[in-house]
């Protein structure tokens, strides 16, 4: 597995185990986390903190948007973009 895949899996697991409000839905990389209500506002903050700590980067509040956090795939893309900057 390359590092990105490992991170994707870890992020899905983190959301599933620690954040998701729906115990019956498994989180996949393309699961819509927002319109389905799997993640509430406190959960969104937990995800931001988890990504920041595990990846050692800072996510500016202006980047914490629906577009960047709709799915795990979008979060991965955001992290890749922030790392390349």
């Amino acid at each position: 597995m390359n590092p990105v895949t490992t991170f994707t899996v870890a992020l899905c697991e983190f959301i599933d185990d620690e954040v998701s409000l729906d115990p019956d839905t498994a989180v996949e990389p393309d699961t819509d986390l927002l319109t389905t209500g799997l993640v509430d506002s406190l959960g969104a903050m937990e995800i931001v903190h988890w990504i920041e700590e595990s990846q050692g980067l800072h996510i500016d509040p202006a980047e914490v948007t629906i577009e960047n956090f709709q799915t795990v795939d979008r979060m991965i893309a955001l992290v890749a973009r922030l790392k390349s900057q």
Binding site: G37, S41, A44, A62, V64, T65, I66, E67, F69
Partner: peptide, 14 residues
């Protein structure tokens, strides 16, 4: 404002 807008303050303010 959708529910996601309420969870993402930067999207709400935008």
């Amino acid at each position: 404002m959708s529910e996601p807008h309420l969870r993402f303050p930067a999207s709400f303010t935008e």
